[in-house]
Design a protein around this nucleic acid. Structure first.
Length: 217
DNA sequence: GGCCAGGACACCA
DNA sequence: TGGTGTCATGGC
């Protein structure tokens, strides 16, 4: 069933080629900036950092908090995001000497627990970093995943992150490119048809949709 | 002018 | 442990 759904999405949207970033480090910065923020605003902030030559662990670490916040002002929550970026950079430097190779050489479970302990990194951000920056087999779920698969009748509106993630990892082959593109497809769907009325007739998953239009979390 | 966007954390009962 | 408030821009 999950593979059938995936095939419908790919047929409709085409391969998504995620994550939209030029480097693994940029993926990490983007994952933090993207928390509850529209992607276009994230792009503005990343472009700004890049133009100023600040897209490196050291530059972000050494930049005063207020200045960093100012550079990423296009993001809402920009002051919180500046704190979170600096918290990650401190951790990355002290623990892994700014080396992505060292970071991603750790066993996945250990690294996941460790990252979850860093201020500002919750499950979705950590899993995005592991999958899209580290090419590690961790399925990323988000608000779109909850909404889309709730409408498809897979679970109630209050399902937890862990429950959703476990479901995908149990029912899909352990395949990094598949995990990568599946999440990207769900986001593409979330950006488009899931704002429509139930069974709008245009959504690629219309035939599976069981949504009655009840309010969701 | 209102609404919402690829979460996480603090605080309270 | 679960519910609720806070964060605070830009595009449509």
């Amino acid at each position: 069933m999950l593979m059938n759904i995936y095939r419908c999405l790919v047929a409709h949207f085409g391969p998504r080629n995620w994550w939209p970033a030029k480097s693994s480090f940029e993926v990490i910065v983007g994952a933090i900036l993207a928390q509850a923020v529209a992607w276009r605003n994230v792009e503005i902030a990343i472009t700004r950092l890049e133009q100023e030559g600040l897209l490196s662990p050291r530059a972000i670490r050494e930049l005063p908090l207020e200045e960093l916040a100012d550079y990423i002002r296009s993001n809402r929550y920009y002051r919180m995001k500046a704190k979170k970026l600096k918290a990650f950079m401190e951790f990355f430097h002290e623990r892994y000497h700014d080396s992505l190779a060292e970071l991603f050489a750790q066993p996945v479970d250990k690294l996941r627990r460790e990252l979850l302990g860093v201020y500002g990194l919750g499950p979705e951000t950590v899993d995005s970093i592991l999958l899209y920056a580290g090419d590690l087999p961790v399925f990323v779920v988000d608000a779109y995943t909850r909404r889309v698969f709730h409408r498809l009748g897979f679970w109630g509106p209050n399902v937890t992150y862990t429950e959703m993630q476990r479901f995908f990892q149990r029912h899909l082959p352990l395949d990094v490119p598949l995990y990568n593109d599946y999440h990207a497809q769900i986001v593409a769907l979330g950006h488009s048809y899931c704002r429509e009325k139930p069974r709008c007739g245009r959504c690629p998953l219309d035939e599976f949709c069981q949504w009655e239009g009840k309010e969701e979390k």
